[in-house]
Each structure stands twice: as structure tokens, then as C-alpha cells.
Amino acid sequence: MDTYKLILNGKTLKGETTTEAVDAATAEKVFKHAANEHGVHGHWTYDPETKTFTVTE
């Protein structure tokens, strides 16, 4: 398992979190669910070198 990071750049919610996942696709599902639960919808990017997802509203 690897550690993946999410950076939230929402209009009303900003922050960072991490998750352990077997691959980037699994981490993305976890992060998108969490972002949706917090009402953050926007443009997603992924940097494979740093294993970091970013969502920007």
C-alpha cells in the first residue's frame, strides 16, 4: 500500500488529508467520495510523482 494525499482548494473548505490505498484509482475514489460529502466539486488533478490529488473549485 502507498500513501496518497488530497489537497482541497474549495470555495468554503480548504485542507489536506491522506489515505492508504493499493493504487491511485482506489485513492481517487476515496478522495472524490470525501470531497462530495463536504460539498467540494471542481477540477481534479493528479501528480503521480508526489501521489497528490488536488481539487480546485
Rank of each mutant, 00 (worst) to 15 (best):
N9C: 15
F31P: 01
L8E: 02
A34P: 01
H38K: 14
H41L: 11
G39K: 06
E57P: 06
A27N: 00
K29C: 11
T45P: 00
F53K: 00
Y4S: 03
Y46N: 00
V40P: 01
A34H: 15
V40K: 03
M1P: 08
N36D: 11
Y4Q: 03
A35V: 10
T52L: 04
F53G: 00
D23W: 02
H41F: 14
K51W: 04
G10N: 04
H38W: 15
L6V: 04
Y4G: 03
E28S: 05
E57C: 08
A34K: 13
G39W: 04
T52G: 01
F53Y: 05
L6M: 06
G15D: 08
A21H: 02
T52V: 07
F31Y: 01
F31K: 00
H43Q: 13
A35R: 01
T18P: 01
Y4K: 03
V22I: 13
K14M: 09
G42L: 04
A27S: 01
K14G: 05
T19F: 12
W44R: 00
H41W: 11
K14I: 11
N36W: 13
V40Y: 06
M1N: 08
K32C: 10
Y46Q: 00
T17Y: 15
G42M: 03
T52F: 03
G15I: 15
T56M: 06
E49S: 13
V30H: 12
V30S: 06
G10M: 13
F53N: 00
T50L: 07
G10S: 08
G15C: 15
A27K: 00
E20V: 14
T3Y: 07
T18V: 09
T54K: 05
L13A: 09
L13R: 08
T56H: 07
I7R: 05
V40A: 04
L13F: 15
T17C: 15
T26A: 14
K5T: 15
N9G: 04
H41A: 10
T26V: 07
V22D: 07
L6D: 03
T3V: 13
T3Q: 08
K5S: 05
K5W: 10
H43N: 12
G39F: 09
K5Q: 05
F31A: 01
T18D: 04
T50F: 06
H43G: 06
E37L: 14
E49P: 08
M1G: 08
T45N: 09
